[in-house]
């Protein structure tokens, strides 16, 4: 199994994100959703954010991806290192695979090449096609390039979504529970695959599954309270994806105890 070693950044382009004093307030809510949030997302590593549903972790991710628009008011400092246009830093993976049902697997992988303010040729370049094909091979779907999403299983679809994310070549990948709709074994395999393919990226993974967080996190935050704040939790020093072991089980119990407080 492929493992990445924490602390080793394999690409210079890796991006880190620091958030200080983050506040998020939806205009149609009386109370703020997030208040006093401090978080550091190190470059080239996986940061997992755990929390009960509705605690504001997805909102945080959507804020980072610049998807909230005018629906909410955000105050707080977000520093991206090295500084760059935040529009081209983030790739987004959601719980649903979000494959366009009218496009073949290959065209879905190529989706991002159709967008952007640059003058785009209507024909895809051979270079892009080659890259998309090789990415599909990497996720084990080399022969399925012509299939429509409706013809693929849930696990396959999420693997196409992974290939599509890689095609974008963004330094930061924002994942909003991308594995939660899959069955246990498919989820396990997809976690391993993602861990292997996204090793040089900065990954922010939102999840409500402690096991998933323990397997994949180089760094682990718990978001809780109303309004929510984030707290750093100690993670095992071993490389990811981790196998299930006693240490992990203990951490899982700790996390469960912590999360349970939030339900009272």
């Amino acid at each position: 199994m492929f493992t990445s070693i924490p602390g080793v950044i394999s690409q210079k382009s890796a991006v880190s994100i620091g958030i200080t004093g983050g506040n998020l307030h939806y205009h149609n809510c009386l109370e703020a959703t997030i208040a006093g949030l401090d978080m550091y997302i190190p470059a080239g590593l996986w940061t997992c954010i755990l929390g009960r549903s509705g605690c504001g972790k997805s909102s945080l991710l959507r804020q980072l991806a610049n998807l909230l628009g005018n629906a909410a008011q955000w105050t707080g400092e977000v520093t991206i290192q090295p500084p760059g246009d935040s529009k081209h830093q983030f790739a987004y993976m959601a719980q649903q695979d979000l494959l366009m049902p009218w496009l073949s697997a290959l065209d879905n992988v190529l989706l991002s090449t159709q967008f952007g303010s640059l003058q785009r040729p209507t024909k895809k370049t051979p270079l892009q096609l080659d890259k998309a094909h090789s990415l599909l091979k990497k996720v084990g779907l080399g022969s399925k390039y012509n299939s429509l999403p409706g013809q693929l299983s849930g696990g396959m679809r999420q693997r196409v979504a992974l290939a599509r994310t890689l095609m974008q070549e963004r330094p930061v990948v924002l994942m909003d529970e991308p594995f939660s709709a899959l069955d246990a074994v498919t989820r396990y395999r997809l976690q391993n695959l993602s861990c292997q393919l996204l090793q040089d990226k900065t990954v922010v993974l939102i999840t409500h599954d402690p096991q998933e967080a323990i397997r994949l996190a180089n760094q682990l935050y718990i978001m809780q309270g109303r309004p929510a704040f984030a707290e750093l939790l100690a993670t095992p020093a071993s490389g990811t994806p981790r196998n299930f072991n006693a240490e992990g089980a203990q951490l899982q119990q700790t996390i469960m105890d912590r999360l349970e407080q939030d339900y009272e």
Binding site: R62, A65, L67, F90, A91, L98, L111, S112, Q114, F115
Partner: peptide
């Protein structure tokens, strides 16, 4: 959302 993060 997806298309927006892709810069559409």
């Amino acid at each position: 959302d997806l298309a927006n993060t892709m810069g559409a």
